[in-house]
Amino acid sequence: MDKLLEVKDLCKTFSNGNVQQHVLKNLNIEIYKGDFTIIMGSSGSGKSTLLYALSGMDKPTLGKITYGDEEISGYSNDKLALFRRKHCGFIFQQNYLNDTMSVMDNIMVNGLLVQKDRKAIYNKACELLSKVNIGEESYNKYPGQLSGGEAQRVSIVRSIINSPELLFGDEPTGALNSQNTVNVLDVMTELNNQGQSIVMVTHDIKSARRGNRILYLRDGVIIDELRLDKYVSGDRERHVKVKEFLEKMGW
């Protein structure tokens, strides 16, 4: 398996006056190419903190994060921005689409960060939007005029418009109803099947099932992990395996 991201002795401490909170403690993990990695854990275990440290959105307090040959943990904010632009895509729990821009502009604005050919970005956006079932009639709508599921699917297209090597999801279905959750997860699964590496934080077992690797975090430390095959719809055995693993973790 090709290693995409390597984390060594990662620590993250938040300070508030004299009070210090150690959220991540000497954490070591590797993220592999093509994997759909799920990070689970109870509230306050440090799931999101780990995700944002891995993605270069936040800087670690201690430790080393290496992406390929690049050690990103010492990068400045602007260098991290360039790193994210080049290698990462993000889907957040809230869609975080820019509510002052149309659907198409929300996608174009990300695409134009990497390439200048507007027509090519537009064509790719149209192709991706159609894959996530967003019709042409929605291109000029504003995020406020879309349903939650539609907006989240648009945010997925925004996140992959630059074909990132690694797609990060921070509970991307957390704010959606069950039907929209399935739709979004289907899109992500499809992307993974096409070779997209994904790291996703979730506390939902249905979402966790989609991954082929589940890391369980407790008190800032990964206490165990579960390896699975690629997701296939209707795989009952997979569900049982995930459930047992999580129960074992005390979830």
Binding site: A81, L82, R84, R85, K86, F92, N98, D99, T100, V109
Partner: peptide, 17 residues
């Protein structure tokens, strides 16, 4: 007003400049 949008822009890879 646009703190969140600016934060998201930064997350997407826009630099401060």
């Amino acid at each position: 007003r646009e703190k969140r949008n600016m934060g998201v822009f930064k997350a997407l890879g826009f630099t401060t400049m």
